[in-house]
Computed example of a mutant assay.
Amino acid sequence: MARKWIRLAGAMALAFPVAAQAQQAASTAPGYTMPQTAAFDMKAANGQIYRIFVSFPKAAPPEGGYPVLYVLDGNALFASFAETRRMMEWSPGDKAIVVGVGYPTDEAYDVRRIDDFTGAPTTSGAYAKFAREKSGGWDRFLDFLTGELRTEIGRRYKTNPDRQSLFGHSLGGLFALHTLYTRPGAFHAIIAASPSIFWHEALTLKEERDFAARLQAGTVPKVSRLLVVTGDREEAILERWDAEDFVQRTAPLSAYGLRTRSEIFAGEGHMTVPVRAVPATLRFSVNWP
């Protein structure tokens, strides 16, 4: 019996170093790097630092430059867009650059998005736990997005200034609508996924009415085309209801130049809508006109 325990102890002593070595090797192994991508941190003029992710085609840029799709919440969403964009290179059609706009963190989401994507503190009970977070910085962020960042991407890659698109989900979708209302010609196409219109509903609806009035008065010389997507299993059902109502309200504005399309993804909840929306977004953003 003594010999048996000695042999067992010896075997365990040999096994533990092997396990430890395997664990160490796993922890020091290099991470996966996505092909045809780049990443860099950029300090905005307002002092904020953003992590910028870029996915670019192998092919030479077309005449006039690549179309560009800017994806908000880049930490969470860039990888899905980048790999799908790379696979779509095998199909005929326009090649595009995808730019993920995120934050210097390994987390999927950063609390700074509340400030960047909203115009004021929330007035919704559903978001009450976020009411104390800094908010209201969406115009400052929009200046960075359409100014410094667009200039920097144009410096690094040959891009088409007339074919720039924007994708935002949830609060990012709210920001996308704000962009449409306040700078309707800043992007060729805007995609709003499950937009959180009820974050500060009164403010957002006022912006919508003001935009509609200007469009009908003929004072908007250029306007983005718009795609609105939601899931039929949105956990906060208002995100679906508000999006459906919004699309109905904007339908008459097609007579004044606003081209709007919408889609409800069967079986998708709030957090899975962006992944389902990737192919539709890429096609909508690169199609011309």
Rank of each mutant, 00 (worst) to 15 (best):
A45S: 13
A25C: 03
Q36I: 00
T28G: 02
Q36D: 09
Y32M: 07
A26S: 13
T33K: 12
K43M: 15
Y32G: 02
N46V: 03
A38P: 01
A44W: 04
A22H: 10
A44L: 02
M34A: 09
A45W: 01
M42E: 09
Q21R: 14
A45F: 02
G31C: 02
M42S: 03
A22P: 03
T37F: 05
Q36S: 04
D41V: 03
A39H: 12
M34F: 11
I49S: 15
S27T: 12
Y32A: 06
A25M: 09
Q36C: 07
P30A: 05
V18G: 04
A45R: 06
A19E: 11
Q36E: 14
A26P: 09
M34K: 06
T33P: 04
T28Y: 01
A39E: 08
M34T: 14
N46K: 10
G47C: 06
A26D: 13
G47A: 09
A29V: 06
V18I: 14
P17F: 11
M42G: 06
A20D: 10
A39K: 12
Q36K: 00
A22E: 15
T28N: 05
Q24D: 15
K43T: 15
V18N: 08
A19C: 13
A45K: 14
P30K: 08
Q48G: 05
G47Y: 09
Q23C: 15
G47S: 02
G47M: 06
M42N: 07
V18T: 08
T28F: 00
Y32C: 01
P35Y: 05
A25I: 06
A20T: 12
P35Q: 01
D41I: 00
N46P: 13
A38L: 07
M34D: 05
Q23V: 10
P17G: 09
P30C: 01
S27M: 12
A22G: 12
A45H: 01
P35M: 03
G31E: 08
A20G: 10
P35N: 00
A38D: 07
F40M: 13
T33S: 11
T28A: 13
Q23R: 10
S27P: 02
G31M: 05
G31R: 08
K43L: 10
N46W: 06
Y32N: 00
Q21V: 10
D41F: 07
M42V: 03
A20L: 14
F40A: 10
A22Y: 14
S27A: 15
Q36W: 07
T28W: 00
A25F: 00
A19H: 10
D41H: 10
Q48H: 09
A26R: 05
Q24H: 14
P17V: 11
A20K: 12
P30Y: 02
A22I: 15
Q23M: 14
A25H: 02
A20Q: 13
I49Y: 11
P17Q: 06
A39W: 06
N46T: 11
G47V: 02
M34L: 15
P35C: 01
P17I: 07
V18C: 00
D41T: 00
A19V: 12
Q23E: 15
Q21F: 12
A38C: 03
N46A: 13
P35F: 01
